[in-house]
Design a protein around this nucleic acid. Structure first.
Lengths: 112, 112
DNA sequence: TCCAATACCTAGTACTACTACGGGTAGTAG
DNA sequence: CTACTACCCGTAGTAGTACTAGGTATTGGA
């Protein structure tokens, strides 16, 4: 499934809202939580992580995984936690608005 | 409210699924049906109409409005009607998938 | 020995909505 | 009579974002 542009950030923020994770784990979580419907490509993942870090919503630090590899673990900042709320709310409002338009009585052609 | 990229086409197709309308009326319908939340800018509207026409989903024709102006009325083609179904379904599935990820149990940091 | 999974990354591309214009008409408030 | 709003069409250029396609390296299993 193609991702809608503008919906990735909230998914990443939500994914990191529990414990710090590295990029690959973020990608895997989103894929698995969506039953394989959303595949977060690496060409979108890593730039997005840097973007979010630059905005101060997440913070990265190199650590060692359980498998003994070096990986960059990201965690939500306080700012990021607020942003998550903002974006979840915005998403739900957008969905409601879309549904509203998709179900509104259609206009007649005779309108000016 | 900023529009999510990729959600405009379905709104236009849906708007035109009743009677033929000109661009301005499409814009007005979406704005009013969304209670002023979605403002379809002209720089997005007209290119989108041409895009949809090029894909064979809508067809435009110059006609005179009730106010005596020349305007380009667009109507859905048979192809466009099918596409509307496809896109509405895709949208609903996307929303369901997003919600699924936004509500899934979070992973623990200890994952590999 | 080969391949999948794990882990990182960048360069370039395509697509799409937005900003900021420009052109013109009709009706109405002042 | 003037200014302003609503009506109607567009285009050019920009910004943002996910995708394609490539590269590097390690680990473990078949």
């Amino acid at each position: 499934m193609q991702m809608l542009k503008g919906t990735l950030d909230v998914l990443i923020l939500r994914t990191l809202s529990g414990a710090p994770l590295h990029g690959y784990a973020v990608s895997r979580f989103i894929r698995e939580a969506s039953d394989d419907a959303l595949r977060l490509e690496e060409g979108a993942l890593y730039p997005a992580l840097r973007r979010l870090e630059k905005k101060g919503w997440i913070e990265g630090a190199w650590q060692t995984t359980q498998t003994g590899r070096e990986a960059r673990f990201y965690q939500l900042t306080a700012l990021g936690r607020g942003q998550l709320d903002v974006e979840v709310t915005a998403w739900r409002r957008y969905v409601a608005t879309m549904n509203q338009v998709l179900e509104a009585p259609l206009p007649a052609s005779s309108q000016a």
